[in-house]
Computed example of a mutant assay.
Amino acid sequence: MTRKHVFAAAGVLAALAAAGPALAEWKPDRPINIIVPWSAGGSTDQVTRVVAPILEEALGTPVVVVNQPGASGSIGTKAALDAPRDGYTWTANAIANNATYAVTGLLENTSIDDYRIYLHVANVPVVSVNADAAEQDFAALLEKIRGGGITVGTAGVNSSGGMALAALHEAAGDPFNARMVTYDGGNPAVIAAASGEVEATTQLAVEQAEMIRGGRIRPLAVLSDKALEIEGLDPIPPITQWLPDMHVAADYFGVFIPAGAPQEVYDAVDKVWQEKVMTSPELKKYATERGAVFAPAYGAAARDQAMPVVVSEACGRVTRGEAVIDPKEIGIDCPSG
């Protein structure tokens, strides 16, 4: 090869090297919509509005949070799945919801693998009562549930609060006279408990923190095997203090980009997640103040992190007779026995 050819080849390689990163870097040219399939003020809405500005600054385009509630989050989720797979329409939720909508028949032919997963926090449900309620601990509330019964506000059967109530029933056994009253999101469910419209709520700590601080509701137990500490509040005792055999799994939340978008979209968001979200002081502050766990992850690591709660919720639906399809059809194997 002549010197001329060597220089020519080197020039081509240099040009390709220079062009490579530019071709791989996604530059959004219009706003990104994140569909929150619940009403404003709930757990998903809260944390998505913390994360959206981080994404907006890093990607250099507006990131718009769109609330589209209904049918336990399945309406907004379907809207995201039905949108063009161009990287401009995402959704947000608890990953256990998106992964198990098909099991309950709310959405057909969907699974966890329909998304690239970006997790940010883990949330825990809290059993709380109206501030004027006589019950001072979960034992007293359980006694009332086994007797005359109570009303419990949740965001629906497939919401975190609804699944928490079902899990409590499963762990406590019958009789369990807790009548669920459903709302369009966790925030209105908690407000209903604070106003006395319902007697209790099992929604997430992040949705209850301000009402607890304000003395509007009284927390009795957290669905965890250890006490929950929220900045400025007394620790909330774990449910295992009363139901020691109750299985609890962390409920991971995040934003999800439907599969089928250009690879450059996922590569760009992966980078933002790693460099900005996983070190975000704003997100850490939110978690500390609201009683969430700061737990960012993305891609395969996020999927692995989320699977325990996905399996728990999907298989719990089978145990409780709420499943319309076998979880195995969407790749979830339930433990035998």
Rank of each mutant, 00 (worst) to 15 (best):
H5V: 12
P31V: 03
E231F: 01
D184K: 12
P237N: 10
V277K: 03
R49Y: 07
E231T: 09
D86W: 08
F176L: 03
G11A: 14
Y286I: 00
I150L: 08
K226E: 14
V36I: 12
A10D: 00
T89P: 03
V50K: 05
I117C: 03
A209E: 09
P31Y: 07
G331W: 07
L223Y: 02
I332W: 02
V309E: 11
Y118S: 03
P237A: 08
A189G: 04
Q136K: 15
P69A: 09
Q274T: 13
V324Q: 09
I32A: 09
Y101T: 01
V310P: 00
L228M: 08
G331E: 03
S74G: 02
P327E: 00
G73Y: 06
G185M: 04
T44H: 10
V126P: 01
A80Y: 04
Q203R: 02
Y266W: 10
E210K: 14
A268M: 10
V124I: 12
H120Q: 15
S72I: 06
D114C: 04
P281W: 08
T89K: 05
I230M: 07
G148N: 14
I325N: 05
E56M: 04
E207G: 06
A24T: 11
Q208S: 11
I325L: 10
L142M: 13
D326E: 07
G60L: 04
D326F: 08
L233R: 00
D326M: 05
K27T: 14
Y266G: 05
V103W: 05
A94D: 02
W90E: 03
H120M: 14
V222Q: 01
D333S: 14
G337D: 12
L16R: 04
A9R: 11
A18Y: 09
R179T: 15
V206A: 11
C334Q: 00
P262C: 07
V255W: 14
P281K: 06
G41S: 08
A17H: 11
I217L: 09
A192C: 10
P175L: 01
K328H: 10
A221W: 00
I257M: 13
G196Q: 08
D304T: 13
R116C: 02
A193C: 13
A15C: 13
V309R: 10
G60I: 04
V222N: 00
T240F: 09
V47D: 03
R146V: 06
A295E: 11
S72C: 11
E197W: 07
V103C: 02
F294A: 00
W26I: 02
V126W: 00
T240E: 07
S224D: 15
D234S: 13
A295V: 08
R317D: 09
M278Q: 14
E229A: 13
Y101H: 08
A96D: 07
H169D: 11
E197Q: 12
I145P: 05
A131C: 05
E282N: 12
L119T: 10
L13P: 07
E264D: 14
Q203P: 00
A302Y: 05
L204M: 14
A300L: 12
G11L: 12
G148M: 07
R317K: 11
A261N: 07
A306W: 04
I54C: 04
E143L: 09
D137N: 15
Q274S: 13
E264Y: 08
G87Y: 00
V36A: 12
G162Y: 02
G254M: 03
A250S: 12
N97S: 14
S43K: 01
Y183K: 05
F294H: 01
D333L: 09
L16T: 09
V198P: 02
A92E: 02
V206W: 01
